[in-house]
């Protein structure tokens, strides 16, 4: 347990000091991207990992929050109003999304969420009077809470970090709570949970709302980071990217989506510097992970680590048991 505390302390210290040891603004911005994508991945993980529901339309929900923020700012409202409205719109859309998609589980859920994601993308793309179509909407300024401007990479990074840490802490509490336990129950044994008197649908619905909140938060951070939103953000590719973050890191673990987000953002940033074919690589990594390491990197390496640990300790243990009468 103390080893875990030390690791957490090191990770925390690393995150807090990022602007001091990173070589430039560019890298600090990459770190901010990793953090808000990690929040997005944590949000999707609530459904994919803990509820066993694979959503392929989450980029649509991410985009709704981003569009709501941009639209409010464009029509002349302040940042506070924009953020509050974006959160409300994000969660309300998630509620509708959940009511429609939770009629089904498994493959049916994938298909409905895929279709809903495509509808949202189609609306963003075609409803030009509202969204500006392919031209998107620009956001001119970042907020200045209490006179603390988020315009510089450093301040934006720290804001994102605080929200990220809050999200991780909330997830850690959620997973260990009775609600987390019942959610995983509905994933593993829905019929038994039903027989035990749990309202399976309601538990899944609440999980969707939690997921929607994190998704909306990350969408708002995204639109303030890029200061621009266009339909491309809502495309199926984006939904697949965040799903890849969750699955590659390890669905149903707290650390997995964070590791996955780091991996995907770094690979994407680094790779797109060299070649344009990011989508080909994304697809190939997807296929490789699903076939070779379906459990994801975090549980995969944890398993290897345990295996190595046991191998190292095994001779000593067998010797001890043999010594006893």
């Amino acid at each position: 347990m103390s080893a875990r505390l030390i690791a957490l302390g090191i990770a925390f210290a690393t995150l807090v000091t990022v602007p001091y040891w990173m070589p430039g603004d560019y890298y600090i911005n990459v770190a901010s991207q990793i953090l808000f994508y990690a929040i997005f991945a944590l949000g999707l993980n609530v459904l994919v990992g803990y509820a066993g529901l694979v959503s392929l339309g989450h980029a649509g929900l991410f985009g709704i929050a981003a569009y709501a923020t941009a639209y409010m700012l464009q029509t002349g409202y302040g940042h506070t109003a924009a953020i509050v409205v974006a959160l409300i719109v994000g969660i309300a859309s998630m509620a509708v999304y959940a009511v429609l998609s939770l009629r089904s589980t498994g493959i049916g859920f994938i298909m409905i969420t895929l279709a809903l994601g495509e509808i949202l993308w189609g609306l963003a793309y075609r409803w030009i009077s509202l969204t500006g179509g392919d031209n998107g909407i620009s956001v001119r300024t970042r907020p200045e809470p209490f006179g603390f401007s988020l315009a510089s990479p450093n301040t934006f990074y720290y804001t994102t970090l605080i929200i990220f840490l809050l999200s991780v802490a909330a997830m850690a509490v959620l997973v260990r709570s009775p609600f987390g336990a019942s959610l995983m129950g509905t994933r593993d044994q829905p019929r038994r949970m039903n027989a035990l008197g749990y309202h399976v649908w309601m538990i899944r619905f609440y999980a969707c709302l939690v997921s929607g909140l994190l998704t909306a938060v990350s969408g708002i951070l995204f639109v303030y980071y890029t200061q621009f939103i266009s339909p491309q953000t809502l495309a199926l590719t984006s939904s697949a990217e965040v799903l890849l973050m969750v699955i590659s890191g390890g669905a149903g673990t707290l650390l997995g989506p964070i590791v996955g987000a780091t991996l995907v953002v770094v690979v994407k940033t680094v790779v797109s510097g060299f070649i344009e074919r990011w989508n080909f690589l994304l697809g190939a990594v997807f296929v490789a992970i699903v076939i070779l390491m379906p459990e994801g990197l975090v549980p995969g390496s944890a398993r290897l680590w345990r295996l190595a640990w046991r191998k190292l300790n095994a001779p000593a243990k067998t010797a001890a048991t043999e010594g006893e009468p």
Binding site: L282, G283, A284, F286, V287, V290
Partner: peptide, 25 residues
């Protein structure tokens, strides 16, 4: 590819998704 994931429909769908990105690119 799909043959390697017998009975695992979720994994099969994800493989077809990955393949579609590769094909597009």
């Amino acid at each position: 590819l799909l043959r390697r994931l017998p009975g695992d429909q979720l994994a099969q769908v994800l493989v077809t998704l990955g393949l579609s990105f590769m094909a597009a690119d």
